[in-house]
Design a protein around this nucleic acid. Structure first.
Lengths: 119, 119
DNA sequence: AATATTCGTACGCGCTATGCGACTTAATGA
DNA sequence: TCATTAAGTCGCATAGCGCGTACGAATATT
């Protein structure tokens, strides 16, 4: 069950086994074992998988059919978001300027990916 | 994390280790190992635990309800930060991949600014 | 065309740690 | 007092996790 869902999720993102394994910090053969059903991930690896694929552990294990779990979410484009919650990187707080640049960066990246998928 | 939650759930139901193990069809020492943190359940056992305690696997693993509203700052380089709080841009959730790129981007930007100040 | 790189798949090995039964200790009741 | 139940710990056998490695096929690079 978990193997099929992992395979499905990875292919949806057009990721290779090697790239996915790199993201997780594990060997390619290890991740490949998860997808083939030859291996089962440890609990720690399982959590990492859910985070990487933006889904829930319950979904990976086939406990639920719904894609995502119900985690608290924070919309970064929200007005005055930094006054609600301070965001830091390496202990140094993020400026609104930096956040705006990031949002623009992600929007551009997503747009480019969307164009790539067109062919 | 999982050990604490199991212990809490079992005590809420006033179940003994033996009774709980019987419900799961495993040895008492095995289940006791889960609660003490000495052992980790297999994925199959994990699912059974979630069913028995009428909860989710994500809760047992601490993927949900770990984010407390008390926190006023969020360190983005924190491990498994996205398991604590989902970040979205334009409603679409941010992947760990994208977050890593952002962190690298900000670090580079800060480094360049530091060099500019040198002269 | 020849070579190099990337992809998915599979195998063997070392070693961790899982699951079990047996044992101990403490608390409760007949 | 003895029996019963609960909780906790330990040693052992072995299942299986994670890794490196290697293969054929497909794609990219020269």
């Amino acid at each position: 069950m978990i193997s099929k869902r992992l395979s499905k999720l990875r292919k949806e993102k057009n990721w290779s086994l090697q790239y996915t394994a790199n993201q997780l910090g594990i060997a390619k053969s290890t991740y490949a074992g998860y997808e083939s059903g030859y291996r089962q991930p440890s609990l720690e690896a399982l959590k990492e998988l859910a985070i990487l694929f933006e889904t829930s552990v319950d979904y990976l294990l086939g406990m639920t059919e719904t894609y995502t779990g119900e985690r608290d979410t924070l919309e970064l484009t929200g007005k005055d978001i930094l006054s609600q919650i301070g965001l830091t990187i390496d202990g140094k707080s993020l400026s609104q300027d930096e956040l705006n640049q990031f949002i623009a960066f992600i929007r551009l990246k997503r747009e480019m990916e969307a164009n790539e998928n067109k062919g």
